[in-house]
Simulated assay, not measured.
Amino acid sequence: MIISPKALARAKAEKLKKGYTAFVETETVAHFLKKEIEKQNLRVVVDQTPHGCWFTPLEREE
């Protein structure tokens, strides 16, 4: 089964919006997820490792 990197990035962005941490293994998905984060104005911490990239949502200040 082939999964679109853009669709995977959108699904990961939805997890971030719900307060969950997201992990991606490829540069391609990380690139699309970063674009999605910008588009949705999400606040996250990005931790890039040699094995992948962790995206951790920051709590919203209200």
Results as ranks from 00 to 15, higher is better:
V29R: 01
E27V: 11
P50I: 00
K17Y: 08
F23A: 02
A22G: 02
L8D: 09
M1W: 09
K34S: 15
K15C: 11
F32D: 01
T28W: 14
V45Q: 15
S4P: 08
L58Q: 15
P5W: 00
E14N: 05
P50W: 11
K35E: 14
I3S: 15
I2F: 10
K15R: 13
K17S: 06
P50D: 06
F32S: 02
G19M: 06
E27C: 07
L16R: 00
V24L: 09
V44F: 00
I37M: 06
H51T: 15
A30L: 01
L16Y: 00
T21N: 08
K6S: 11
G19N: 06
L16M: 02
A30P: 00
M1Q: 08
W54P: 02
E14G: 06
I2W: 09
K12A: 12
F23T: 04
I3V: 14
N41A: 12
E27Y: 05
W54A: 05
A7P: 03
K18N: 14
P57M: 05
K34L: 13
I3Y: 12
S4A: 06
G19E: 07
K34V: 04
K35N: 15
T56P: 01
E14A: 08
A13H: 07
W54Y: 11
A11S: 11
F32N: 03
I2E: 14
E36C: 09
T21A: 14
T21V: 10
K12R: 14
A7D: 10
K18P: 01
P57V: 10
M1L: 12
I2S: 08
A7T: 10
E62G: 15
K17P: 01
R60Q: 13
F55R: 00
E14Y: 03
M1G: 15
E27G: 09
H31G: 13
L8S: 14
P5F: 03
P50A: 06
T56Q: 10
K34R: 15
K34E: 07
A7I: 08
A22S: 09
T28F: 12
H51W: 15
L42W: 05
Q40L: 12
V24P: 00
G19C: 02
F32L: 11
E38T: 11
K17G: 02
N41M: 04
H51V: 13
K17H: 08
T26G: 03
V46F: 05
K6M: 07
W54G: 04
P5E: 08
K35V: 09
A30F: 00
Q48E: 14
H31A: 11
T49F: 05
R43S: 13
L16P: 04
T21F: 05
E62V: 10
K35I: 10
K15G: 11
V24S: 01
I37K: 06
Y20K: 10
G52H: 01
A30K: 00
E59Q: 14
P50R: 04
L58G: 03
A22I: 01
K12H: 08
E62R: 12
A9P: 02
G19A: 05
K17N: 06
V44Q: 01
T49K: 14
F55M: 04
N41S: 13
K35A: 15
